[in-house]
C-alpha cells in the first residue's frame, strides 16, 4: 500500500521522521514537543496517491554545484526522489532552559541487509551551511531490516535558527525567513554508493493548533 503513497522505493522505505525538543530526565511523550513529524508506519490503500512536483522548480533551493540536486536527479533513480512541505509546529509550551534536548530521530526499513549512509544538508538561500553524515547498520526485526537513527542531537545552527525564528512577532515573517531555508537528505548504500532515497524538505509555520503537518510529493522531470 505504501508504494506511490509514501516516501520509499522497493529498496528502502521511510517509516518515521521527527525533529523534537524534550525536557531531559523525563522522556515520556508529555514533555516532548515535535517540530515536524512524518509517520508512515500504517500505510493504507485508502491513502491518496502522491502528487508530483517538477524537480526543476526547486533546483535553486538546494546546492547546485557538484553533488547538487540536479546532478543527483540526473543520476537517479528518479523514483527515489521526494519533496516534503512541512508546516512546522513552533507552539511549544516547554520553556527553553538548560537541559533541553534537541534531537532528530528517523527510521527506515528494507528487505535487504545493507549499511546505509544518511547525509543531511541544511541550506540557506540554496547554499549548504552544515552537513551531518551518519552511518547505520541493519537490525533484523519482524521479517525486515530496520535502520534506526535514534535521538541524533540537533546541530547548534538549527537550534539557534529555531530560537531566532520563534522571536519573530508574526507568522508571515517566519514564513519569509523559512522560504530560504531548506534541508536535503540523501540516503545511500554505503558499500555500493547506490542512491536509495533523496528527500528535499521545505517549510512554513503551522497555523494549526493540532501540531505539525506535511504534504509529500514525488519529484519528477516531465
Amino acid at each position: 500500500a505504501w508504494q506511490g503513497r509514501s516516501i520509499g522505493t522497493p529498496k528502502l522505505r521511510l517509516v518515521e521522521f521527527m525533529a523534537f525538543m524534550e525536557q531531559q530526565g523525563e522522556p515520556d511523550a508529555y514533555n516532548k514537543h515535535l517540530y515536524v513529524h512524518i509517520s508512515q508506519s500504517n500505510p493504507s490503500y485508502s491513502d491518496a496517491l502522491l502528487e508530483s512536483v517538477d524537480v526543476r522548480q526547486i533546483y535553486d533551493k538546494f546546492p547546485e554545484k557538484k553533488g547538487g540536486l540536479k546532478e543527483l536527479y540526473e543520476k537517479g533513480p528518479p523514483n527515489a526522489f521526494f519533496l516534503v512541505k512541512f508546516w512546522a509546529d513552533l507552539n511549544t509550551s516547554i520553556q527553553d532552559e538548560p537541559g533541553i534536548f534537541y534531537g532528530v530521530s528517523s527510521q527506515y526499513e528494507s528487505s535487504e541487509n545493507m549499511t546505509i549512509t544518511c547525509s543531511s544538508k541544511v541550506c540557506s538561500f540554496g547554499k549548504q551551511v552544515v552537513e551531518k553524515v551518519e552511518t547505520e547498520y541493519a537490525r533484523f526485526e519482524n521479517g525486515r531490516f530496520l535502520y534506526r537513527i535514534h535521538r541524533s542531537p540537533m546541530c547548534e545552527y538549527l537550534i539557534n535558527f529555531i530560537h531566532k525564528l520563534k522571536q519573530l512577532p508574526e507568522k508571515y515573517m517566519m514564513n519569509s525567513v523559512l522560504e530560504n531555508f531548506t534541508i536535503l537528505q540523501v540516503v545511500t548504500n554505503r558499500d555500493t554508493q547506490e542512491l536509495l532515497l533523496c528527500i528535499a524538505y521545505v517549510f512554513e509555520v503551522s497555523t494549526s493548533e493540532h501540531g505539525a503537518q506535511h504534504h509529500i510529493y514525488r519529484l519528477v522531470k516531465d
Binding site: W87, F125, G126, E179, E204, S208, G211
Partner: peptide
C-alpha cells in the same frame, strides 16, 4: 551571493503546496 530567487508563490507548484492539511 546568488541572484534573486523567484518567490515560491510564482513557481509551478500544486495548489496543495499552499494548503496546510487538516489534522487527521
Amino acid at each position: 551571493g546568488k541572484p534573486d530567487q523567484v518567490p515560491m508563490r510564482n513557481r509551478q507548484l500544486p495548489p496543495s503546496f499552499w494548503e496546510e492539511p487538516r489534522p487527521s
